[in-house]
Design a protein around this nucleic acid. Structure first.
Lengths: 349, 349
DNA sequence: TTGCAAAATGTAAGCGCTTACATACCCCGC
DNA sequence: GCGGGGTATGTAAGCGCTTACATTTTGCAA
């Protein structure tokens, strides 16, 4: 009388495959994890039974039994910046080759967010962690240490950092850049930079600029320092504000150092809109060497970072640690100073 | 005599917390999953014991017991394109609010890769899937259907698609764009577009262009159609090749339709480098409205897509399905035609 | 005080898999 | 023909958690 309701399609389990292939679950498991340990005939039987019912080992079960999740986490500020997207893409590729799944967190430059994301990742059982930057809640590294899992800080590379780092020395890079501008005769600088709060990389960049200037007895005048969310727009607005102020009170800066290429591109555009020639009247530098940067007019002088390389190296380091090795973290990368069309000699006073 | 080797720091388990708080593991679990069911005094005891030993429920164990993983997967071509990065970013935010972890796959426009990534995700127990585009191996959708998990196709929205879609009608969008160019008097078109193989969205765009042209009895001449990996460079090279060929044999095209903004930006740059005025001599259109597009000179005429909105809608749809609802997928989005500075009336012959 | 329903807690059975160990089998040399 | 060693398979004990159900405690009316 009663229709048997068709049970909802339930995920097949190893025992179902085992039954179909007339073997034990141990053998099923071996076929998928140590195929060389099972006789070819049986192996085929299991494989086709599995294929027929669309079975594959459920990761949660095997993670539990194996006590390995094969998950690692990447913690970045945002995917909206192509430099981090590239880093993540490269890491994912490297991990996928080794059968490891990458979990992603975008913390939006919020330390609280980063901390809770890391907690969530630990709950998911990540076996390694790559984290952008080292200015995080102290708890963050404590919590990781408590779990004793390998991790690496990316995109930042202080010589005396307590963490394994894959990146470059932000301060040194900006010192180098600033010195080059000094060599070109510039003495009056403007700076447009990302928010320094909670961002060790940006702080280091600013330190780099200041250090290089200090060598010549120079400094950044407060009204020449603009700090705000990186975007082309903020670059434009800051450049305009800086120059309009200069019209009222004294000489213009001759060189503008920007915290990244977005800001620099905005600055170039606005300078041109105000009728200034770049680089004849004003030199402008960026940082990152985005895909677009060589194509803008004039092409942007900037420092080139190989973001995919950062991702790859970070993944390799973590992979080695997962294999039980203890390799030294790779040496710092060296950003390339690429002088294109937005920098030139300081205009004669 | 023998030193007891310090056991490697082992992840604490629920029973450890239970012992410390002098309760059963059931209570520990309840404190974390149904806190209102346990007396405040005990709850605090458990919570502080947990905090003291840094315990939190291990996701693999709870996934198994609960038969829910709280993971969903996003399958995109690549993070290198900011449109997908934005979509993923928005999805991740939406899911995180609901305690759901996003797993990411970048299939690099390879159907095989997409298929095996989806398999891997199913093995991880994803409870939902968002997939860019619908031109995939037929197996891919079959495998998903076999698991009976909700999914949504993003970035594409054919009226008669069998899938739930969140996106826009690529064909219609390019028809509209092309008609506008026809209204401006253009009759001789060039097209620079992404590879059409395995890419339903690009195919639809090309169909849209052809359909609109056909209404006027026009067609794309083969030597005016360039297809290749999207990049500024490919845009430049294609534009140059097209124009150089035109010098030798007959009139120049007056309008170039590009498959996305990268290609269009390249085309504009190269046209300018060749001494053509945009838009007086040549109109050029893009698609996507990248962040940079309004800033190039002249600012790019393009269609604006709200990629974050796509991500949000896809997440909302999936979330509803996970809640057991069966909402209709959202209506197609309508890309905005943004006429900026790279289009104008066709030059007088 | 007693009794009863409701609330709080505990007990224990899985969730789906892997793997140490036990068992069965096979092949050979003597 | 027998024993030994190697190989192929099976048995069953967890991995860390949740939750149905059983048990105990509590609050309160009579």
């Amino acid at each position: 009388m009663t229709e048997r309701a068709p049970n909802p399609p339930r995920r097949p389990r190893a025992v179902d495959v085992a039954a179909a292939a007339e073997v034990s679950t141990a053998t099923v498991s071996r076929v998928f994890n140590n195929p060389e340990k099972v006789a070819p005939a049986i192996r085929d039987r299991v494989l086709s039974a599995a294929r027929a019912m669309g079975w594959m080992p459920h990761a949660a079960g095997s993670a539990l039994a194996r006590r390995r999740t094969s998950i690692v986490g990447a913690v970045i500020p945002t995917l909206d910046n192509e430099i981090f997207a590239a880093q993540v893409g490269a890491m994912q590729t490297a991990f996928a080759e080794r059968g490891i799944t990458l979990l992603l967190s975008c913390f939006n430059y919020s330390q609280d967010q980063a901390f809770s994301d890391v907690q969530a990742m630990l709950a998911r059982g990540v076996e390694g962690l790559a984290i952008v930057g080292e200015s995080h809640k102290p708890d963050l590294f404590a919590v990781i240490a408590a779990r004793a899992i390998p991790y690496v800080v990316t995109y930042s590379h202080r010589p005396d950092s307590p963490h394994a780092c894959v990146g470059f020395d932000n301060q040194e890079a900006f010192e180098r850049l600033t010195r080059r501008l000094l060599d070109l005769g510039h003495r009056d600088f403007g700076v447009i930079i990302q928010p320094t709060a909670d961002n060790d990389r940006v702080q280091a960049r600013l330190r780099g600029i200041r250090a290089a200037l200090a060598e010549q007895g120079l400094a950044i005048r407060p009204q020449r320092l603009f700090e705000g969310a990186w975007s082309i727009d903020f670059g434009r607005r800051s450049l305009r504000a800086m120059l309009e102020a200069a019209v009222r009170s004294g000489p213009r800066p001759t060189a503008i150092i920007c915290g990244n290429d977005h800001l620099a591109i905005g600055a170039v555009l606005e300078a041109q809109a105000m009728g200034l020639r770049v680089p004849e009247d004003l030199s402008i530098t960026g940082f990152d060497d985005l895909a677009i940067s060589r194509h803008v007019a004039p092409p942007l002088t900037t420092l080139h970072i190989d973001n995919r390389e950062i991702g790859r190296l970070a993944a390799d380091y973590l992979l080695a640690r997962l294999d039980g090795l203890d390799p030294p973290p790779p040496p710092p990368l060296l950003p390339d100073l690429i002088e294109r069309g937005t920098t030139g000699p300081a205009p004669a006073a």
